[in-house]
Design a binder for these strands. Structure first.
Ligand SMILES: [Zn+2]
Length: 443
DNA sequence: CGTGCCGGGCT
DNA sequence: AGCCCGGCACG
């Protein structure tokens, strides 16, 4: 979990919202706590939202917190901008030239819902004045590329509960926005026999499901059933990572821990992200851009795909002219389980982090070849009575040879995951993100 | 134990 | 088709 960035299914806490302040302007903040009047004590884990629910919003940048109710908040999962009246001076965000820019409202025509806004373009010194429609305007800054900002799928809730479990709790009702990213699956091979035809007799799986759904105890701050990844700690995720992008515009950049009362102890943790520099090799043949993690494989690539087969009289290291070596920030070598950085790390644009390092010719060739024969050790004595679950014993030994069909013998190439590290998953090639065979650093 | 990725589920 | 993840093999 050191690095997964996606917020797993989680409560509204942490959601970014905008709320009206005393001066009549909306300010952005984050939901810090939720108070429910608790008429339904049996099920208040994050699911029981009533009109009386109070949300404590802490405004950005400071100490100020205030309580609001549902209808007063603007943001994902709450009301939208429709019907809102924006005062002059209101800070807003809008997409201008494909980029999100900040702007201030000059005036707002309530009839037509058109606004004049003054854009502070990052480049130009002179503020630009624009006419915008209300729906083109946001009160919240979106961290995502504004273009992709609002896909609002509603799939999530379907994925949530397998089959029919309505009898478990008819009262569970939740705005779908907050269930996003939930992804559950029964144990890989035991539950997949159909809930296509259901009869009145519950099979084991259904029984288990019902049990789990009931197991949300009233006091647990978050539902921890399902082995939900989010149950580990606020903002935690498994080491197998995940993505930060889902429905909600921006994940909470803060990590707080909450007591049951909704009092938030907030420790601003900005862990000194130790990064290491990793080196990748990029093919500079025009139009190629192939990247790989080792010197030898980039040279192999160039040799094969661009230069032809090596001829006799040719200069030996011709490949070296067609690739460059570049540094890439990589994850700390020893990932801990304690990072809670689900949100995108501060460097917004990963590309800025990359630095081109000229390709000096260096004695890489000789350095990286391992000239040593590999010691072959044959495991004769199994010491594996040590600790194993008494239940079922897996026989891994039988006939697993690296050359067995289906599994390729893993090249010594560093793949995206290792090169960029878990916290730069967005730099991985698509296949790596999907846990598929890497396409960037091929063999 | 970390990594790579296959198989398979989900939307 | 794109995405995600369990689980397993490899090192
Ligand atoms: Zn890759």
């Amino acid at each position: 979990m050191s690095t997964g960035k996606r917020l797993a299914k989680r409560s509204i806490i942490g959601t970014r919202v905008a709320a009206l302040s005393d001066d009549g302007l909306y300010y952005s903040g984050m939901i810090q706590a939720v108070k429910t009047p608790a008429p339904f004590p049996e099920n208040n884990n994050c699911i029981n939202l009533t009109p009386n629910t109070r949300y404590t919003v802490r405004f950005d940048g400071g100490k100020v917190s205030r309580e609001y109710r549902d209808a007063e908040l603007i943001g994902p999962g709450f009301r939208g901008l429709a019907g809102v009246r924006l005062k002059p001076g209101q800070r807003v965000f809008l997409t201008y030239n494909g980029r999100e820019v900040r702007a201030d409202v000059l005036d707002h025509d309530h009839e037509t819902d058109e606004l004049r806004v003054q854009v502070h373009a990052p480049a130009a010194e002179v503020p630009i004045e624009l006419r915008k429609r209300l729906e083109e305007i946001r009160l919240l800054e979106s961290r995502k590329s504004a273009r992709l900002a609002d896909v609002d799928t509603d799939f999530a809730r379907l994925a949530d509960m397998a089959g029919d479990r309505r009898r478990a709790s008819a009262t569970i009702e939740v705005p779908a926005h907050h269930m996003q990213g939930s992804r559950k699956r029964g144990p890989s091979s035991s539950c997949d026999l159909g809930y296509g035809e259901r009869d009145d007799q519950m099979n084991e799986c259904n029984a288990a499901l019902v049990l789990m759904s009931l197991s949300c105890s009233p006091n647990s701050p978050r539902p921890s059933a399902w082995g939900d990844r989010s149950s580990v700690s606020p903002g935690a995720s498994s080491s197998s990572g995940s993505s930060w992008r889902s429905g909600t515009p921006s994940p909470p950049p803060v990590s707080s821990s909450f007591s049951d009362e909704g009092i938030a102890m907030d420790y601003e943790d900005k862990p000194p992200t130790k990064k290491r520099i990793n080196i990748v090799f990029e093919c500079t043949w025009r139009g190629c851009g192939y990247i790989t993690g080792s010197c030898s494989s980039i040279e192999a690539h160039i040799r094969q795909t661009h230069l032809g087969p090596k001829k006799e009289g040719e200069s030996d290291h011709e490949e070296e002219f067609y690739y460059t070596e570049r540094e890439v920030a990589a994850a700390a070598p020893a990932p801990t389980l304690s990072h809670r950085d689900m949100c995108r790390p501060p460097h917004e644009d990963p590309d800025y982090q990359r630095q081109l390092v000229g390709s000096y010719r260096q004695g890489l060739l000789s350095t990286m070849q391992n000239g040593s024969a590999r010691p072959i050790s044959i495991p004769v004595t199994h010491s594996w009575s040590t600790s194993h679950s008494p239940k079922h014993i897996k026989f891994t030994g039988a006939n697993s040879s690296p050359g067995s069909p289906g599994r390729r013998p893993r090249s010594d190439n560093k793949k995206c995951r290792k090169v960029y590290g878990m916290d730069q998953r967005d730099l991985w090639c698509t296949q790596c993100k999907w846990k598929k065979a890497c396409t960037r650093f091929g063999d």
